[in-house]
Structure formats: structure tokens, C-alpha cells
Design a protein around this nucleic acid. Structure first.
Length: 724
DNA sequence: GACGGAATCGTTTTT
DNA sequence: CGATTCCGTC
């Protein structure tokens, strides 16, 4: 293979990043600037030019989708399989390490992964067993606390008591929770990362083995890493320091769940010799759209700084529709989509983005009325469905009897006469003897501490699971799951539920198909000696996400702005652009949250390739009440000349000129000093347009979008602005 | 254990 | 408003 395939068709910045010498590097990759491309080509470069064997490379992503895409593109570029290349999510790779070294990590070989829902249930159960009031100690909060501590790499022992009773209680719960997980062989998502980190940190020989093995570590979406993930990367990249990270501080939208944008700054300090490359040329959006995005994001402070540009055309203005109410808003959007489709465009090129999932309903209704097929992202995923989790719980119990979470889940599902009272006794016995529920149940069957009927039912349950295991030991995974579903009695149970039960039964059949597919993909070649059942269960927990992605289908796309990250659409609607909704009222409380909302808006805008529409409702029913929200501040931050207000009924759009008079609705009006839209002249910066003002008296600050320098905040009393 | 009425409560999400 | 959870009754 020759070099040209790898570096041709890259722009200068991309090529610079791809061909950097070994060492640490930070690639600041703006939206649509070819970030995945750089990662993929970097891998190919290292493999082909630097002659680094693929198995000495590790690439880390956040989603399975990104990992799969990257692997596919590497293979396409190299024209051969990329087996041996470790590429996966943080969680997936951590899981792999823990499976390989379960014993060293202090875990049973049979350990199982606890997903967020399992974790929540386990915590509720814990609260109950400790007789704590759920109202006073909300399980969600406990869960948040525990995960937050783990994300920061802190074990209970490392937490210093402040004397705060709340903290004290949380700490107690964290400790108790850990004990349950440990004796049940359960590992939650945060624990995967923490354990993997500790495994490497505390075992010098393992650490040096992996440090030696991985000459290069590449990281995608680096701005989303949390403390423990960063620590993990530091450890792994170790001495060589060959850490190649790609990220965009302006697209950091997961701070609320532990992502540390500071990691970008930390990286710069911790790797003083790193190379920095900015990817600013955008290949996705029109100049108008990029302009709006640039000006908006310029309102954030502490950016690493980046300005997207394009060689492409100006494109159409961004439209702004002030709807009467939320019905009208949905109607408008669907009308526009109709027109777009009439022009012969694809449904899948159009997306409706919103801040919160609840907003999808109205759009769905109107789309149904219009007979336009659509797809809503981010609903219940296949492996999260109750019936699937029930069936999986049986499989998990077979793999590991100590799994208390699964035991509780199916001990009386379907109902078999083991009621709350019996389970209560079991829990108590388990707690006092520090045993898993299964063991406690076995013991209780000996002691006759139960009424005959319950005892009988319990014995039958224990026998059922044991029998399932013996009968199923020698057969393939799909056959196993099929038999277990049948013998569990779940199907007749759901049959009683009528129509809803039918879909559940269909889903169970689908589960068998999934196991068959998994078997087909993984064959008998048990990866590194790990039983296929364990591999499947881990995948069910870790890759529940994109199980049913029928990308080929033709649907209008509905999703939150969060889930839109990484995607692009020719036509984008950003709906509900209202104060209180976006930015949400809660994001005003905490400092930093508003900036994250603004980044989210930036992410939304930069999804659009050709056409962008903003909509908001002047009246919106929320929680059954009529509200009259104001237009989102984010829209005020966008230069008016980029926006075109739309009145739908006449299908005439009113061009917006600089003069405020051209904005009769007064949407963008503001009461101080210079009206937004006013053209002004500054001695140093030249001509520009006023975006907004704030403050009063001599403290008035004006934000001006200069033709040369972009948006800037100026003190009106010093700036000596001249009206043009 | 199933059912129904009352009470409660409302971001964002991947793993 | 509407989904989910809780609690009391049969």
C-alpha cells in the first residue's frame, strides 16, 4: 500500500494531525471537521508508515456505534481485517480487562454487569432492608452519589467524613452497596472503570505488560471523559506517552453526568510536550449556519478557541418561526417537511431536534396525521424491556447463583407463591449472615423457618434453576435461552396479559433470535476462554444501545439535541427555542450549566448541512398549565441578519434588514443603548452589527458582531461606537 | 396477587 | 396534562 491512500484527500490540518510523530497530541476538532477521518487515518498511518502492528494500538470511544464505525473505516482503508486492534468503548475495554484478570481484580469469574436500572433496584432494596425512608433518602440521589464517587475514583474508605449527617448516611449506603455487589459478583458501569483502573494501578506487572503492549492509545470525544477515564488513559499510555486525543470543548454536553471538560486543560498540563492541531475547516454546513454557530459559542468563556469556516456557499438564511402555541409549532414543522419532501428529498435527511423527549409527542401526532413515516430516537431499548430483563435474569442466575439482583427479579416472576413476606424473610437471613440470597434460601429450606406452602414454592424455584442449569449445560446458547424461556413459565404468564403480553412474547422470541445471531457471530471460539453465555450477557448490558438500527429505512428523524451529537442532516428543525425550556430553567441555577446549554445549542446548529429552522411557541401548555415563554436567549445571541422571520400563513417571508423597524414583532428588541440589529462603527474593529446589550448606566455592555473580528462584548461608555 | 383509584412528579443519556 | 408509582381493597 502506498502513502497516498492515507494522506491524499486530507486537508493540511488533518494531514498534520495524521502524520504527527509519536508522542502526545491533542486534536481540537470542530463539528464536521473530519474528526473520525483523522482518527481512522492516524491508525492507518501508524500501521502502514510507522509499521506499528495493529495489536499494539488501542482506540477508545464512548459509544459502540462509534467504535464499530471506526473499525469498519479502518478496515476499508487498509483493505484487510483489523482483528487484533483493540477498539471499543471505555466500558467495553474495561470489561475485557476484568474478564481476563477477574481473579487479580478480586472478582469471581462469573461476575455480571449491573446496568443503571438493576443498580437502581438494588439500591431501593438496600434502603428497604435498612428501614430507611425513600422519601428522605431518594434512591436516585443515592445512586447519583455512589456513581459520582466512583467516577471520581473514590472508594468509601477514601472519603473523609465532614460531620455532615447527609454525607454520613450516603457513605454508609455506599459502603453497604459495595458489600452487596461484592458478594453477589455484580459490577455496575462506574465500577467497571474504577476496577479496571485499580487493577492496573495496583499490579505493576500487569500494568507494564499492557503499557508495553499498547504503543499508542487514541481517544475519541476526549471532552467527555470523566476523572477515572482520564486516570485510566494516563496509566495505560504510561511511559511512552503516546496518547492521541481528539475532542472539542465546544461540544462538551455531558458535564452533568461527570464528564470533565477540564481534562482538556489537564491534558495540556500533564503532557507539556504535546502537539496541538486545530481542525477548523468544516465540510458539513453552509457559511450562514457556521456563522450563527460561531457567534453563539463566542458567548462562552474559557474556550480553547476555535472558529469554523467553510469553502462552501453562504446558503440560505436560517429561518425563525414564532408559533402561536405548541400545536402551531408542530404544524409548521410538519408543513415544511411536507414541502421538502415534495421537492423530492429523502425523509431521513430531515430531523426535528428538541431539548427534552416529552416534546416529541406533538410532532409525532402531526406527522401521523400527515402520513409521514418517522422514527423517534432514544425510547426504551430492546434489552431494557421488562420481559427481556426477566429472561436474562434467569440466564444470569444460571451463570452465577450469587447474583442477588437477578434472584430478586425472578424469584416470583412469574408469580409462583413466593410473596413479599417470604422474600422479606430471605433478605433478613441473607443480611444477617452476609450471604447471597440464593445461599440464604438454601439454608432456610433446611431450617423450616417458613410456612409449608411458601417453603414448597421456594424449594421448587431453587430446583427449577438448578435443573435448568444441568439440562442446559451442554447445548448452544440459543437453544439454552429458548429452553429457559419455556421452562421459566414467562410465556403463559404474559399470555394472560392480553394484547400487551403478545408483544412481550414476540420480544422473547426476538431474544432467542438475538442469541442465535450472537452464536453465529462468535461461533464456538470462546473469546479467551470466556463462556459464550457470559459474553452474551455482557453484551446485553453494554451494547443495549444500537440493537435495532434499521438505518436503511426511510424516516424523518426525531431526537433530542443530545442524541443528535455526531449526526448530520440536510434539513434541521430546532424546536422549543424558549427560555425555561432551552435553556431549561434549572440550568440557570448552577454556574456553568448555562454555558453547557449553549454548547448544546451549538451542537444542534452544527448538525444542519443546508437548512436550519428555529421555532418557538409564544404560548405553550406545560404540565397542564398555559405558559407564555420568552424567546430563547440563544436566538438573541445569533446575529439578526442571519435570521429570517417566517410568517407561515401567507407563506411570505419578511426579509430582515438591519433596521429595528423591520422587526415589528420586536422579538429581538432590547431596551438599552443600541438596539439589536443596529449597524455601528468602531475605531479599531470596523463595522459591525449590535447583537444585544446588558447592564445600565455607565455599565452598559454591548455585544457587536464585527465583520472582521466576529462577536465581541464592549463597554458602551468606552467603545465610542458610531451609528452607521 | 390483581385491580383500580389516588397521589406524585415532571431535563439531557451511554455504558 | 399524562405517565408512573403507591396504597388499599377484594
Amino acid at each position: 500500500m502506498d502513502l497516498t491512500t492515507i494522506i491524499d484527500a486530507l486537508n493540511d490540518a488533518q494531514r498534520e494531525a495524521v502524520t504527527l510523530p509519536a508522542g502526545s497530541a491533542l486534536v481540537l476538532a470542530g463539528a464536521g471537521s473530519g474528526k473520525t477521518r483523522v482518527l481512522v487515518h492516524r491508525i492507518a498511518w501508524l500501521a502502514q508508515v510507522e509499521a506499528v502492528p495493529l495489536h499494539r494500538l488501542m482506540a477508545v470511544t464512548f459509544t459502540n456505534k462509534a467504535a464499530a464505525e471506526m473499525r469498519g473505516r479502518v478496515e476499508a482503508l487498509l483493505h484487510h481485517s483489523a482483528r487484533g486492534l483493540w477498539i471499543g468503548t471505555f466500558h467495553g475495554l474495561a470489561h475485557r480487562l476484568l474478564r481476563r484478570h477477574a481473579e487479580t481484580a478480586g472478582l469471581p469469574e462469573t461476575f455480571q454487569i449491573l446496568d443503571a436500572d438493576d443498580q437502581y433496584r438494588l439500591i431501593r432494596r438496600l434502603l428497604k432492608s435498612l428501614n430507611l425512608d425513600e422519601g428522605r433518602w431518594p434512591p436516585r440521589q443515592v445512586q447519583w452519589y455512589i456513581n459520582g464517587q466512583k467516577d471520581e475514583g473514590r472508594r468509601p474508605k477514601a472519603i473523609v467524613e465532614t460531620g455532615d449527617p447527609f454525607q454520613h448516611q450516603m457513605l454508609q449506603l455506599y459502603t453497604a452497596y459495595e458489600a452487596i455487589c461484592q458478594r453477589s459478583g455484580l459490577v455496575d458501569f462506574a465500577e467497571l472503570l474504577l476496577r479496571a483502573h485499580e487493577l492496573l494501578r495496583d499490579h505493576a506487572e500487569l500494568l507494564s505488560h499492557y503499557q508495553e503492549r499498547f504503543h499508542h492509545v487514541l481517544v475519541d470525544e476526549f471532552q467527555d471523559t470523566n476523572t477515572i477515564q482520564y486516570a485510566w488513559l494516563r496509566l495505560l499510555s504510561g511511559e511512552s506517552g503516546n496518547l492521541f486525543v481528539v475532542g472539542d470543548d465546544d461540544q462538551s454536553i455531558y458535564g452533568w453526568r461527570g464528564a470533565k471538560i477540564e481534562n482538556l486543560h489537564r491534558f495540556r498540563r500533564d503532557y507539556p510536550d504535546h502537539r496541538l492541531v486545530r481542525l477548523e475547516q468544516n465540510y458539513r454546513s453552509t457559511a450562514t449556519i457556521l456563522n450563527a454557530a460561531n457567534v453563539l459559542i463566542a458567548n462562552n468563556e474559557n474556550r480553547l478557541g476555535k472558529k469554523l469556516w467553510t469553502e462552501g456557499t453562504q446558503g440560505e438564511p436560517i429561518s425563525l418561526y414564532a408559533a402561536f402555541n405548541e400545536q402551531d409549532e408542530a404544524y409548521f414543522v410538519v408543513e415544511r417537511i411536507k414541502q421538502w419532501l415534495e421537492q423530492g428529498h429523502l425523509r431521513s435527511d430531515a430531523a426535528i431536534l428538541y431539548r427534552s423527549n416529552a416534546q416529541s409527542r406533538l410532532f409525532e401526532e402531526k406527522l401521523i396525521q400527515a402520513g409521514i413515516p418517522y422514527r423517534v430516537y432514544g425510547g426504551l431499548r430492546f434489552f431494557d424491556r421488562a420481559e427481556i430483563k426477566d429472561a436474562l435474569a434467569y440466564l444470569r442466575l444460571i451463570a452465577n447463583r450469587d447474583d442477588d439482583a437477578s434472584f430478586e427479579r425472578v424469584v416470583n416472576a412469574p408469580p409462583r407463591g413466593i410473596g413479599a413476606r417470604t422474600v422479606e424473610i430471605l433478605r433478613e437471613a441473607a443480611r444477617s449472615r452476609q450471604q447471597p440470597l440464593w445461599r440464604a434460601a438454601e439454608n432456610i429450606c433446611e431450617t423450616k423457618a417458613l410456612p409449608a406452602r411458601a417453603l414448597n414454592a421456594l424449594k421448587q424455584f431453587l430446583q427449577l434453576v438448578d435443573a435448568m442449569e444441568t439440562d442446559v449445560r451442554e447445548i448452544g446458547l440459543s437453544e439454552q435461552s429458548k429452553q429457559i424461556i419455556e421452562r421459566s413459565g414467562l410465556i403463559p404468564h404474559y399470555q394472560k396479559e392480553g394484547e400487551k403480553g403478545e408483544t412481550r412474547i414476540d420480544n422473547l422470541k426476538e431474544l432467542v433470535n438475538a442469541t442465535r445471531q450472537f452464536e453465529y457471530e462468535h461461533g464456538d471460539s470462546n473469546e479467551e476462554g470466556i463462556p459464550i453465555l457470559h459474553l452474551f450477557l455482557a453484551q446485553a448490558a453494554l451494547e443495549a444501545g444500537d440493537a435495532q438500527a434499521d438505518e436503511a429505512e426511510e424516516y424523518v428523524q426525531l431526537m433530542t439535541m443530545h442524541s443528535a451529537k455526531g449526526l448530520e442532516f440536510k434539513l434541521v428543525f430546532m424546536a422549543g427555542m424558549e427560555e425555561g425550556l432551552f435553556p431549561g430553567e434549572r440550568s440557570l441555577e448552577e454556574v456553568g450549566r448555562l454555558e453547557e446549554e449553549r454548547r448544546l445549542c451549538y451542537v444542534g446548529i452544527t448538525r444542519a448541512m443546508q437548512q436550519l429552522h428555529f421555532t418557538f411557541a409564544e404560548s405553550r401548555r406545560r404540565y397542564g398549565r398555559e405558559t407564555y415563554p420568552k424567546m430563547s436567549r440563544f436566538l438573541r445571541e445569533i446575529p439578526p441578519e442571519l435570521l429570517q422571520e417566517v410568517r407561515m400563513r401567507a407563506h411570505v417571508s419578511r426579509p430582515v434588514t438591519a433596521a429595528p423597524a423591520a422587526r415589528p414583532t420586536g422579538l429581538l428588541d432590547d431596551s438599552c443603548g443600541f438596539p439589536p440589529g443596529q449597524r455601528v462603527m468602531h475605531n479599531k474593529f470596523g463595522e459591525g452589527v449590535v447583537l444585544q446589550c446588558e447592564g445600565d448606566g455607565s455599565q452598559i455592555r454591548v455585544q457587536v458582531n464585527f465583520e472582521k473580528g466576529g462577536a465581541k462584548w464592549l463597554m458602551a461608555s468606552y467603545a465610542n461606537l458610531q451609528v452607521v
